[in-house]
Simulated assay, not measured.
Amino acid sequence: MELENVAIDACDPGLLGAFWEGLLGGTRITDEPDLVETRVVAPGGAALDVCVPRVPERPPPAPRLHLDLAGGRDQDAVVRQALALGARPLDIGQGDVPWVVLADPEGNPFCVMEEREVYADAGPIAALPLDSTDADRDLAIWRYLSGWVEEPRSPLPALRHPSGCGPLLELCPHPVPKDPGVKNRLHLDTRLAPHEDVDDVVARVLALGGGVVDHPWGDLPWPVLHDASGNEVCVLPART
């Protein structure tokens, strides 16, 4: 398996997809009325697709996953670009911090980060911070689902592509469990390899402390699982 998508639900995929494509410098790979996908490639070839499907619900007030963008020495320029593309400043009570908090055109928070050595080979997306109430179990689940390896330089439990490039998946300690009735507006998708069996994957995630999401979204061609903290993940079928 490999981590393939960060999915951002959107009321208007064309608008939101164009915003993230322009800000991240990605390459559009899907352009449909209900789905826009952009491929973002980091140094070393590690790729992550930003998948923007049409989902009418508005974002919840406190998302459990967001994007941290690489700013570094160009932080001010990245912030100016984001604002020009339709972002707005956002105060979530962050106080005096070295990063800048913004909201995308549909209100999803994201951060433009200051310079950090661990982000040097991240590419446009520095990190994917994910709230976790059980970091040890979540780290094991995401290590299995993503194919990524632990990043020892991160102060938080974190994983990264085996190349050592691309964004970090950071597990951020959070005391409040996720509400199982509220879907994450941002979530991650993983893709099966041709030799992997989806039933085996589901069984392994259950054994590691995750679960299967009982959702009202109709028949999907893939299972929707969750980690030990309740964060959803779609397990996409192998490509033929």
Rank of each mutant, 00 (worst) to 15 (best):
E196W: 14
P221M: 00
L206P: 11
A82C: 06
V52C: 10
A46D: 15
T38G: 06
V202A: 05
P63N: 01
E106D: 09
M113P: 11
V213R: 02
P56C: 10
E114F: 14
D131M: 13
D227M: 08
L206Q: 10
L48K: 12
R80T: 14
A207C: 09
E106S: 02
P63D: 02
L145T: 04
L159D: 13
L220A: 02
A18I: 10
P162Q: 01
H66Q: 02
P105T: 02
D197S: 12
R143L: 14
G218L: 13
L15N: 04
L90W: 00
A46L: 09
P109E: 01
P33Q: 01
C172T: 13
C11L: 15
L67S: 03
Y144W: 09
E2M: 15
G166F: 09
D197K: 14
D197E: 12
C165V: 11
A140F: 02
V36F: 01
V101T: 09
A77E: 15
I92V: 14
G209S: 08
L156E: 03
D136F: 10
R153C: 12
R73L: 15
N184H: 10
R160H: 02
D74H: 05
V41K: 03
G25C: 05
V118I: 10
F19A: 04
A126C: 06
V201R: 05
L169P: 06
P60E: 08
E151T: 07
V212Q: 06
A193W: 15
E32Q: 12
P33R: 01
A120W: 01
H174Q: 10
P162W: 07
K183A: 13
D9V: 14
P155C: 08
P124H: 05
R39C: 07
H187T: 05
W222V: 04
A87K: 07
E232R: 11
A203H: 11
E170K: 06
A228P: 10
A228C: 06
H66C: 09
D219N: 13
D199E: 09
G25A: 07
F19Q: 05
V205M: 08
A84F: 09
G22F: 08
K183Q: 15
P177Y: 14
P152V: 13
P223F: 13
G123D: 14
Y144E: 10
D9R: 02
W99Q: 05
L192T: 07
L83G: 05
G45C: 07
V224C: 07
V235L: 00
